[in-house]
Design a protein around this nucleic acid. Structure first.
Length: 499
DNA sequence: TTAGGGTTAG
């Protein structure tokens, strides 16, 4: 870290005589200012800096500290503040003979996108169009993922279209499948159709099995099994994109989800006997899940035996799926048996397996047993996550053990456990349902102190008014005033999380 | 991390 600070001071000092392109002076490395991209368009488009001074000790020192591309990348990666990272990016370019390349652009874009500084991302992308160096499409695939994560789906498509203009090559099959999969995964039906139309009209390409598989998933997600089957039939008529294990597993999953279990089994048999494709643990899991959802738990359990007999060892995924099936049917004893069986075969339960069983106990009202399992997780160095604690919080509340739930909410973040908005929502909903209004108030203060705003604020105020709890109503009003004041001061904007 | 599986809440 010290090296990075020295480097910034050194560049800031050497920069003071040059034109400044930043929104703030380079010496004032503050992130509190509003974000304005400090990028310039291109070296050529701008006036040349002052001529270099005569060789002095300082300039010799500068030469000695020449920053290579590799060092620049490391400095940008290590820098936490995206604005500082961008300043480093700009500053290194001022060194004589230094031109950014694909790797430095990829690094700064990743840093900015991770920090959601999308205006700055746009400025960097604009600068790239003036560069002569060769870019790789990987930069755009990475940006597509960031945009998708932030639900900026139009921009995913836009990044795909940018590949051809900036990379000056047709997007690869990998780029097509990445874009298509991101749109399908985020259930962007219209954009997916738009993209498919674009592919058909503009890019004459032959889809491979991977792309067809994403299409099968797309139709399964839309519950349009007939279209999914049509795609698989089309695949069968092609040599280069014949259905594989993933195709069959996806389609079987779609059929199971639509309650067409019989067809899913027929497909499984066709896959094994006709196409001689061997199922793996993942394929079996689709069937186990299907049987569980159809309430056929004993058949689901028999699949584990079938797997072993056919040379496929069940995984913790298979066991957790089955345990969850038993849990949903309130068959706690069998869920515990499955858990023990998993351990007896030498499998180490993970966080999800433990959480599944803890949920079984909580649903059965056996909170103390659930807490014991939490202890066992600690002993076995299996880290409980937010979901584990949310399951426990729900269990405690269902049993009316509100003090313990509130205690957990208060204490866990202090012990370094991350809680999310669901954690607070679970407890607050129970408190409101059970009319525990003073405890709800207590939780509300805790939440506001942690910058979580409950979704049920209005609902709470109605309850308080109906119960003639004037003091609580007044407190609630004060909370709202405080929050609105925070907004007007721009203090909490962007930090408050609606629960 | 170019395509398929298990846990909470809503």
């Amino acid at each position: 870290m010290k090296a990075a600070t020295d480097f910034i001071s050194f560049l800031a000092a050497s920069f003071s005589r040059h034109r400044c392109f930043s929104s703030s002076p380079p010496s004032a490395l503050s992130s509190s200012l509003p974000w304005i991209s400090p990028l310039r368009l291109s070296k050529a488009a701008l006036p040349k800096p002052d001529p270099p001074p005569e060789a002095t000790t300082a300039s010799v020192e500068r030469k000695r500290k020449y920053i290579s591309h590799e060092s620049a990348i490391n400095l940008i990666k290590r820098e936490r503040d995206p604005q500082h990272a961008l300043e480093i990016f700009n500053m290194v370019e001022e060194q004589n003979g230094f031109n950014h390349n694909c790797a430095t652009y990829a690094t700064i874009l990743d840093k900015l996108a991770r920090s959601k500084k999308f205006q700055a991302v746009d400025a960097v992308l604009l600068q790239m169009t003036y560069e002569t160096c060769k870019f790789h499409e990987g930069i755009f695939l990475n940006l597509m993922k960031h945009f998708s994560k932030c639900s900026m789906h139009e921009r995913v498509l836009e990044m795909f279209c940018t590949i051809q203009t900036v990379v000056r090559e047709k997007p690869s099959l990998k780029a097509i499948s990445t874009c298509l999969n991101l749109l399908v995964e985020s259930k962007q039906i219209d954009l997916t159709q738009k993209f498919l139309l674009h592919l058909r009209k503009r890019l004459k390409f032959k889809p491979n099995t991977c792309i067809f598989n994403i299409l099968v998933k797309h139709h399964c997600k839309n519950k349009d099994l007939e279209l999914a089957l049509q795609v698989v039939n089309e695949m069968k008529s092609s040599r280069i994109s014949y259905p594989n294990l993933i195709t069959y597993s996806t389609l079987m999953g779609g059929l199971c989800e639509s309650g067409r279990l019989k067809e899913a089994i027929e497909l499984f048999e066709e896959m094994v006997s006709k196409d001689q494709v061997l199922p793996d643990a993942l394929t079996y899991n689709v069937l186990i899940n299907g049987f569980c959802h159809a309430g056929k738990l004993d058949r689901a359990r028999k699949i584990l035996v079938f797997m072993r007999n056919n040379g496929c060892n069940p995984t913790i995924f298979n066991y957790s799926t089955l345990m969850n099936g038993f849990c949903k049917e309130s068959r706690l004893l069998e869920a515990m048996e499955v858990f023990d069986e998993m351990k007896s075969f030498g499998l180490k339960p993970d966080t999800v397996s433990y959480t599944t069983l803890i949920n079984c106990f909580c649903r059965a009202g056996k909170i103390d047993e659930a807490t014991k399992l939490l202890e066992e997780m600690k002993e076995r160095e299996c880290r409980a996550d937010t979901v584990t604690f949310n399951v426990l919080l729900g269990g405690l509340c269902r049993e009316g053990r509100f003090e313990e739930a509130l205690g957990m909410l208060e204490k866990l973040p202090r012990d370094g456990v991350y809680l999310n908005k669901a954690s607070y929502r679970i407890v607050l909903n129970f408190l409101c349902q059970k009319g525990e209004l003073s405890k709800a108030m207590e939780l509300l203060f805790l939440m506001l102190g942690r910058r979580f705003l409950p979704h049920s604020l209005l609902q709470m105020s109605c309850w308080f008014a109906l119960a003639r709890l004037d003091w609580q109503l007044m407190q609630l009003q004060r909370c709202l005033d405080w929050w609105i004041w925070g907004l007007s001061q721009n203090l909490n904007h962007g930090f408050i999380c609606w629960n």
